[in-house]
């Protein structure tokens, strides 16, 4: 890991947070399509969306972190994150794009920084976003699946 000087992240905003996901974990970015609500699911699962023949759950990260609710608009996007054989759609208020960050700039997630801290791989201070939270998508998907199944 130390041999790689940088890594590429997909940066988006939701609520007032700037979040980054390793671009290798992002399969595609797409526009909001028809959303089908699902009964008996956790509140952070907004419903299911169809994408290239597959039905994916749409997760609202704000609700997931317990920091409010996202408000989907016609301009809203979601990206499809993947980990192993699992995929999920994540709601994004605005997509920023791909950015390269130096690993040396990467800091560990702040202790006691809220509920989202356990799903972060680290944070990067940048003049463009302020604090960029690097999200562990695999962990989020695993956790979400576990929660959904339990219910």
């Amino acid at each position: 890991m130390a041999a790689q000087p940088d890594e590429e992240v997909f940066v988006f905003r939701t609520g007032d947070m700037a979040l980054g996901v390793l671009s290798a974990r992002v399969r595609e970015v797409t526009r909001m399509g028809p959303l089908t609500p699902l009964p008996r699911t956790p509140s952070f699962v907004l419903g299911v969306v169809g994408h290239r023949g597959e039905v994916l759950p749409l997760i609202d990260l704000l609700r997931f972190f317990g920091q409010g609710e996202s408000r989907p608009t016609s301009r809203s996007r979601f990206f499809i994150g993947e980990t192993g054989s699992f995929m999920a759609a994540f709601f994004a208020d605005a997509v920023v794009g791909l950015r390269r960050i130096l690993l040396s700039d990467k800091l560990p997630p702040p202790l006691g920084g809220g509920s989202q801290a356990e799903f972060l791989t680290g944070v990067v201070q940048s003049p463009e976003f302020g604090t960029l939270n690097l999200l562990d998508v695999a962990k989020v998907i695993t956790h979400a699946r576990a929660k959904a199944v339990i219910r």
Partner: peptide
């Protein structure tokens, strides 16, 4: 333009992969 933006973004992701 919106569609182009998405297309370019996904193309960049493909390139990255």
């Amino acid at each position: 333009a919106d569609r182009s933006d998405l297309l370019a973004l996904n193309a960049a992701l493909e390139g990255s992969r």
